[in-house]
């Protein structure tokens, strides 16, 4: 796969991050839990890193599951 950059999905808490991970993986979207990058937030929690090219697909899945997302940012 050609790397085309990453995005991170920021959610309220680690529990929410776990829900996002489960939903995305169930739909075949590769994701990795990483600490929230310091330049994005001072939070001590985790966020979900995905490939930028999968942002749209991820948004559809999370919207359908009514998961509240704080923001999605490229890194």
């Amino acid at each position: 796969m050609t790397p085309d950059g990453y995005a991170v999905i920021l959610v309220h808490s680690t529990s929410h991050a776990m829900r996002v991970e489960r939903l995305l993986r169930d739909e075949g979207i590769a994701c990795k839990m990483i600490p929230v990058p310091r330049h994005i937030s001072s939070d001590c929690g985790v966020c979900i890193r995905i490939l930028c090219q999968e942002i749209d697909a991820a948004c559809c899945i999370l919207e359908a599951a009514h998961v509240e997302v704080e923001s999605i940012q490229t890194i």
Partner: peptide, 22 residues
């Protein structure tokens, strides 16, 4: 400790807690 760090063991712990929620 689940939810208190982003390293792999903390994430594994958080996954276990989330699986219990499920």
């Amino acid at each position: 400790n689940p939810g208190r760090a982003g390293h792999r063991l903390a994430v594994d712990a958080a996954r276990i807690v989330y699986s219990a929620r499920e």
